[in-house]
Each structure stands twice: as C-alpha cells, then as structure tokens.
Design a protein around this nucleic acid. Structure first.
Length: 114
DNA sequence: GCGGTGACTGACA
DNA sequence: CTGTCAGCCACCG
C-alpha cells in the first residue's frame, strides 16, 4: 500500500534513484530525500515498504555492510539481489569506493584503465 | 507524557 | 580491526 507521507515518498524516490549495479547508505538516502540525520527513518521506510519496484537491497550501512544480521533471511535475500546486479559482496560487506552510487566513479575508471 | 527499541551514524578508545 | 557511547527520530505499551 502506498504511503501518503511525503517523507516516505521522498525516501522511496531517493532509493529508486540508485542506478543498477550501485549501492547507497541509509544516511545518504536520507540526505538525498531532504531528511539529514534520519537514517533510522529510512530503515523504517524499508521495513514498511511493500512496493516491489523499490530496490531496497541497494541500501547498505554507512560502512558498506549489509544492515541485516549475517545468516538471516533478509541478509541472504539482499545478498542475492546485489550479486545478481554485479555488486561484489566481500564478507557481508561492499566496497563503497567502487559501487557507491554517489561516489567518485571517475576514480574507478582511472584505477582500472577504463 | 515517558521509557524502550530499532534494516542508523560518527566519534572515540 | 572491534567495542562503547551519545545523538537521532518515529513508533509502541
């Protein structure tokens, strides 16, 4: 069911704005949604969001780690989606310097010769 | 109104 | 690297 709450709508829009094969953090999503410091609200939105189009799995912690306890069903689900999009997950963690949606992509090209 | 809780975060030891 | 702490805000009993 769609929420009429503008904050939730802004959060959903920010999450949808993450390009495929990239990831972002709760804090970054909150800031992008015009809600600085509301990372927990983003988490709440993800928990309550039932929209199938919402790429919630592209949202990680600020350190690139998956927000779920390792081994939980949600963890495995998120891990599966990320790998399906080509995101490299190392020990339950993603290198934000390479897959961060709002990070320096040019640096990636410089380092890898693209 | 109040204290506990959580898919969080940055600072600090 | 890990662990602790304070700040943060919506929700619940």
């Amino acid at each position: 069911m769609s929420s009429t709450n503008p904050a939730y709508l802004a959060i959903c829009a920010a999450v949808r704005a993450i390009p495929p094969g990239c990831v972002s953090s709760y804090g970054a999503i909150a800031a992008r949604a015009g809600l600085p410091g509301r990372a927990r609200l983003v988490a709440k939105a993800m928990s309550g969001a039932d929209e199938p189009d919402l790429p919630w799995y592209r949202v990680l912690r600020s350190n690139g780690q998956i927000a779920f306890p390792k081994g939980s069903s949600g963890y495995r689900e998120q891990l599966r989606h990320l790998k399906a999009e080509g995101v490299v997950v190392k020990n339950g963690r993603v290198d934000l310097t390479r897959f961060g949606a709002f990070a320096d992509q040019d640096l990636d090209r410089a380092l890898w010769g693209f």
